[in-house]
Design a protein around this nucleic acid. Structure first.
Length: 476
DNA sequence: ATGTAC
C-alpha cells in the first residue's frame, strides 16, 4: 500500500479520509513497514466497507489484514440499526465463528519429550482432519437443531467436556438468538457428519510450549508460565458455516438490488439490520457460532482423551475460547453516547478490556485473553484486551499472521515433504492429511505473525502476554 | 475457509 495516499495519525495508525461515497474514514493500524507491505486492495475494500449505510466511526483495518471476499480479512466495521445500518454475510466471512481455543495441561516440555512421537501419532489418529473429513459423531435432523441452539453447552450435555468449561468460552459457550430454522437443509446436511473435525487450510490442533512471557503478572492470572505445555485448537463451523455464507450472500445480493442499496461491489452484499433478511441471517449466523463452539468443544474432548492415555487423571482446563469471524451486537460509546451496534469482525479477534462483564470472573480485572494463532511452524501469541482498544477499534485486535502469498503460488514454490522435513529439524512434528495442504500453508506463505502482534501491541489494540512455540501440529 | 467450481 502506498503511504502517500494516507494521513499519518500516529506511528501505528493511518487514515484514509472520507472521499467519494465513503461515509466515514478508514483507519489502518500497523507500523510503516506493515502498512507498506499491505495489499492496495485492502484500502479499496476497507473504503467500500466505509460506504455502506449506517457505518459508525470508521472502517477499521487490523495489522494482519489482507484481501478478502468483499470485506478485507482483518477488518472491523460497526453498523447502527437506528441509522439504517446493515449486516453483511461477507463482513463475517465464510468460516463463521472460526476461532482459537487454548487448553492448559499443567505439563512441562520434559514431561512430553519421551512420548512426543506417540502423542503426535495418537492425536493425528483421533482428531479427524482434512477437507470433507467426517467424525464418529453423526447427527440426525433434530439433534442438529439442538446443536445449533446449544453450542458448547449442547456438546457438554452429550458428554464432551465439563460444565466448568463454559466459564472460559465466549458467550459462555452458547450464543443466544440462534435460529436453526434460518439455516438451510443443505447446510445442516453438510454438517451432519462433520462435528468434531478440524477441517483444512490454516486450521490445526497444536501442542505448544510457552516460549516467552512478556507480562509476568498477566501470565500468572492466565495460569501460564515459561516452559508450560498448552494445546491450541484453531477451527470453525466447517461446511455449515460455509453453506450459510453462500446461501445468504445470494439472498443479500437480491435484497440490496431491491432496496437500491448502492453497493460499490457485488461482494459487499448486505441487508438492513431491521429487515426480515437481516434478522434471519443474524439467526443463522448465530447458529453457525454455536456450531463452531460445539465443534471446538468436541475436539477438546478428543484431545483430553489422548492426553489421558499418556497422563492418567490429567484435566486440560480451558484457558479461553474466542472467535475471529463474527457479527456481535455490542454497546459501544459513540460521541459520548452508548449505542447498540452490530460489530462485524472478519479476521479480527474480540479484545475486551478490563472490567467488561462479558469476561470470565477470574480475568475481569486483567482483561480478555486474546488468542492469536500463528501459521504452521511459527509462533502463536496470547495477548490481553486493553481499555484503549474500545476507542481504537470497538475492542478488536488481530487474528493471526494473514497470508502473504496465494495458495497456488505457494504450491509452485514448495513441496509438502520438504516443509515437513525442515520443520522436523527444528523439533516440530507435523502430522498432516494432505501434503498439498502443507505446501499451501508453508510458513513463508504467511506474513510474520511476530511483526503483526507487535504492531497490535504497539498500536494499543491489545497487550502482549506470552509467546507459544509449536511442538506438534495436526493439520488437514 | 469450502463436498478446494454449479
Amino acid at each position: 500500500m502506498e503511504l502517500a495516499g494516507l494521513e499519518k495519525i500516529s506511528d501505528f495508525c493511518w487514515e484514509i479520509p472520507p472521499q467519494g461515497k465513503m461515509r466515514v474514514p478508514v483507519l489502518i493500524y500497523g507500523s510503516e513497514k506493515i502498512v507498506q507491505a499491505m495489499d492496495q486492495k485492502v484500502a479499496e475494500q476497507a473504503s467500500n466497507v466505509a460506504s455502506l449505510p449506517g457505518i459508525v466511526k470508521a472502517s477499521f483495518v487490523m495489522p494482519d489484514a489482507h484481501w478478502g471476499y468483499g470485506f478485507p480479512i482483518g477488518g472491523v466495521a460497526a453498523y447502527d440499526p437506528e441509522e439504517g445500518g446493515v449486516i453483511s454475510a461477507g463482513g463475517v466471512g465464510f468460516d463463521i465463528s472460526c476461532g482459537v481455543r487454548t487448553l492448559l495441561t499443567g505439563l512441562k516440555e520434559k514431561d512430553i519429550q519421551p512420548i512426543k512421537n506417540k502423542l503426535a501419532e495418537l492425536l493425528f489418529k483421533e482428531i479427524p482432519a482434512g477437507v470433507g473429513s467426517h467424525g464418529k459423531i453423526v447427527l440426525d435432523k433434530a439433534e442438529i437443531d439442538k446443536m445449533l441452539e446449544g453450542g458448547a453447552k449442547w456438546a457438554i450435555a452429550k458428554g464432551y467436556g465439563q460444565q466448568k468449561d463454559l466459564d472460559r468460552i465466549e458467550e459462555q459457550g452458547c450464543m443466544p438468538g440462534a435460529d436453526p430454522q434460518a439455516v438451510s437443509h443443505l447446510a445442516k446436511e453438510r454438517q451432519a457428519k462433520e462435528m468434531g473435525t478440524l477441517g483444512s487450510g490454516n486450521h490445526y490442533a497444536e501442542v505448544q510450549v510457552v516460549g516467552k512471557i512478556f507480562d509476568e503478572a498477566l501470565a500468572k492470572i492466565f495460569s501460564i508460565h515459561q516452559g508450560d505445555i498448552v494445546v491450541s485448537i484453531h477451527c470453525g463451523s466447517r461446511g455449515l458455516g460455509h453453506q450459510i455464507g453462500t446461501d445468504y450472500l445470494k439472498e443479500m445480493v437480491v435484497c440490496a438490488q431491491k432496496l437500491k442499496i448502492d453497493l460499490p461491489e457485488r461482494e459487499l452484499a448486505c441487508a438492513p439490520i431491521a429487515s426480515e433478511l437481516g434478522k434471519r441471517y443474524l439467526g443463522a449466523m448465530r447458529a453457525g457460532i454455536n456450531c463452531a463452539l460445539a465443534n471446538r468443544q468436541i475436539i477438546t474432548q478428543l484431545i483430553r482423551n489422548v492426553f489421558s492415555y499418556f497422563f492418567p487423571g490429567i484435566e486440560l482446563p480451558i484457558l479461553y475460547d474466542v472467535s475471529h469471524n463474527t457479527c456481535k451486537v455490542e454497546k459501544h460509546a459513540v460521541n459520548g453516547h452508548l449505542k447498540e451496534l452490530y460489530v462485524h469482525r472478519k479476521g479480527a479477534t474480540r479484545a475486551f478490556g478490563p472490567n467488561n462483564p462479558e469476561i470470565p470472573q477470574d480475568f475481569r480485572e486483567a482483561g480478555q485473553p486474546v488468542l492469536i494463532g500463528g501459521s504452521m511452524g511459527t509462533h502463536s501469541y496470547i495477548l490481553v484486551g486493553t481499555t484503549q482498544s474500545e476507542q481504537l477499534a470497538f475492542s478488536s485486535a488481530v487474528h493471526g499472521a494473514g497470508r502473504a502469498m496465494s495458495r497456488s503460488k505457494a504450491l509452485k514454490e514448495w513441496k509438502g515433504k520438504e516443509i515437513i522435513r525442515n520443520l522436523e529439524q527444528k523439533g516440530i512434528i507435523i502430522k498432516a492429511v494432505s501434503e498439498r495442504g502443507v505446501a499451501e500453508e508453508a510458513p513463508l506463505a504467511y506474513k510474520d505473525v511476530s511483526d503483526v502482534v507487535e504492531a497490535a501491541h504497539n498500536a494499543g489494540l491489545a497487550k502482549l502476554v506470552a509467546r507459544l512455540d509449536p511442538l506438534i501440529c495436526i493439520k488437514g
